[in-house]
């Protein structure tokens, strides 16, 4: 089939613009990967290079020197991400469905109830005391799952999607067929929301994967520490505190190459899941197929 000129044009435009943006996005990451394989001496002397002057896998041998530990760290992260994302997605979309339904009289009150928490918070002290002293969640897996669980933004995006792209008529007819609210939600709304569920699911999973704040605040036990926190500690130890370091006897700073290698190790697995989710929000769905 021959493409019409306007389609050729937009594809060309797409390749040029997206290609450029993709290059700008990827180059730094590639530089990072390449330089994580560089020797410390080379990084400090020549800066980041497009091709290292001195190759060295030292950084990786250091990370994997203790394979049990790194496996454990991966395990915690994957467990928390999987469990958290599943739970969060289910409950978020359920709530979103409720505030999206026109017949729910207080739906705007409920939306405001959620949105308000975005604007005001009681600050760190109260939150910390609540979670650690009153709820006793410190040093549990639950704290890693619960603290980053819901994002108001995600719920409201879901609400928006359900309200605008699922025709009222489908819900009405299901209701006439005798389906109850829970049934409508599971059998009609969820399947029809696949694209947005995939994207929100991705956001949630990324949120869990990249969460270093929760473990920083609430996890002290080494065997409960997730991946990003390990990375975070390494990266952060250098910068924020340098002002006080003058008072210390010595603080062993992590090597530049180690920081890069750790970023690669912490990013790799989550990037691999992207293509699997991706088909849901690119392929789209046809409403007819679900209805029938």
């Amino acid at each position: 089939m021959k493409k019409s000129p306007d389609l050729v044009a937009i594809n060309l435009l797409g390749w040029i613009i997206i290609g450029f943006l993709a290059l700008v996005a990827t180059a730094p990451f590639l530089i990072l990967v390449i330089n994580s394989l560089s020797s410390e001496h080379s990084i400090i002397n020549y800066g980041y290079q497009l091709w290292p002057k001195e190759f060295s896998a030292d950084a990786y041998t250091m990370i994997f020197e203790n394979p049990q530990r790194i496996l454990r760290v991966y395990g915690i992260t994957i467990l928390v991400t999987g469990l958290g994302t599943g739970l969060s997605l289910l409950l978020s979309s359920m709530a979103a469905y409720v505030v999206a339904r026109r017949e729910v009289k207080y739906r705007n009150v409920l939306s405001f109830f959620l949105y308000f928490t975005q604007l005001f918070n009681g600050g760190l002290v109260t939150y910390y005391l609540l979670v650690s002293r009153d709820l006793h969640l410190s040093n549990t897996l639950w704290v890693l799952i619960l603290v980053p669980m819901f994002s108001v933004m995600n719920i409201l995006i879901l609400r928006n999607f359900i309200a605008t792209s699922i025709p009222e008529s489908i819900i009405e007819s299901a209701r006439i067929d005798g389906m109850d609210d829970l049934g409508i939600f599971f059998r009609i709304v969820l399947p029809l929301s696949a694209p947005v569920l995939a994207s929100i699911g991705l956001f949630t999973a990324l949120g869990y994967w990249n969460d270093w704040w929760t473990p920083m605040m609430f996890i002290q036990k080494r065997d409960l520490q997730p991946l990003q926190y390990t990375l975070y500690q390494m990266l952060a130890s250098v910068t924020y505190t340098a002002q006080m370091v003058g008072n210390m006897p010595t603080v062993n700073l992590p090597k530049e190459s180690l920081k890069l290698a750790m970023t690669v190790v912490a990013t790799g697995p989550i990037i691999l899941i992207y293509p699997f989710l991706q088909k849901h929000f690119v392929a789209g769905i046809t409403i007819g197929s679900v209805k029938g």
Partner: peptide, 29 residues
């Protein structure tokens, strides 16, 4: 351990919670 850049926040928080802490590093600086 309280990480270097959590010093400003977590150090006082641990003390504010006051549970599960018997001793803590202290210094004039």
């Amino acid at each position: 351990y309280i990480g270097w850049n959590e010093l400003g926040s977590k150090y006082p928080l641990v003390l504010a919670a006051g549970e599960d802490v018997d001793w803590v590093y202290a210094a004039s600086w």
